[in-house]
């Protein structure tokens, strides 16, 4: 535990000193969220509920940017520069290394989330119809699932090129096709079918239920997909972590 805290503290300082996390983890998600909030809140034809539903998607952009981009890319960089090789000949568990990095990225995701909530609340007068605790709990589950996928990419990518490819692919497909930027509801039917494969799409469905305070309905399936991601991501990383 002592080493996890020390590792996270030092990593935190290193990562926060770089501009990447501020730019991609905070500025970009907040900007995008503001833009969507602005467009949807003004567009009368899309109705008030579409604007409310967009809250689910925009709050996950920061999670995507930090969890499936920032996290795996930093780990892959350490592997590339043989920094992980030095850790391999110490008693540290790879789970700690990944968790320390995840905590750092999570801190940016938290800032991002708070900023998006503030923007939605202050500028667009957003009120959550459902209950905040249920929403936050669901949001936590979605975050865990996304971070587990990021861990898996970072933990297993054999080199930087592969890590880049996988995290970019995961980031952009989920950003564009899971309803995070373009609402699921406006997509053509066949794209919606495609979207149903993406884990984040399931997360956003769950979040939408939570926003509206509706019963979960098909929520069991969505939750199962997310929990599956967590199990595969965390288990795969712990078992198959590549030091070099």
């Amino acid at each position: 535990m002592k080493s996890l805290i020390t590792l996270a503290r030092i990593e935190g300082r290193l990562v926060w000193k770089g501009m990447d996390i501020v730019l991609f983890g905070i500025c970009f998600p907040v900007l995008l969220a503001s833009l969507f909030g602005y467009l949807l809140s003004r567009d009368a034809s899309s109705g008030a509920s579409n604007f409310q539903l967009s809250f689910a998607a925009v709050t996950t952009i920061g999670v995507l940017a930090t969890g499936v981009m920032g996290l795996p890319l930093t780990i892959a960089d350490y592997r590339h520069r043989q920094i992980l090789k030095r850790f391999q000949v110490t008693p540290v568990s790879p789970v700690y290394l990944v968790m320390a990095q995840a905590l750092v990225q999570l801190s940016a995701a938290l800032v991002s989330f708070t900023a998006v909530v503030t923007v939605y609340h202050v500028f667009f007068d957003f009120r959550l119809p459902g209950s905040w605790p249920v929403f936050l709990l669901t949001y936590g589950l979605v975050t865990l699932a996304m971070y587990s996928l990021g861990m898996l990419i970072g933990g297993l990518a054999p080199n930087q090129k592969a890590a880049n490819l996988w995290s970019t692919l995961a980031y952009f497909t989920m950003l564009l096709f899971s309803g995070a930027t373009i609402p699921y509801e406006v997509m053509p039917r066949w794209v919606q079918w495609l979207m149903d494969v993406l884990p984040l799409a399931h997360g956003i469905h769950l979040l939408k239920h939570a926003i509206m305070g509706e019963p979960w309905g098909q929520g069991g399936l969505h939750a199962a997909v997310l929990i599956g991601c967590i199990l595969i991501g965390a288990g795969g990383t712990a078992k198959f972590f590549k030091w070099r």
Binding site: S3, L7, I10, R13, L14, Q82, I83, V92
Partner: peptide
Amino acid sequence: FQETNFPDRLTVQEACLQWASL
């Protein structure tokens, strides 16, 4: 190791703290 790499911006103090914590 023959070649020792460190993360950018890591200070000497942090390198020691980090290693000692393991």
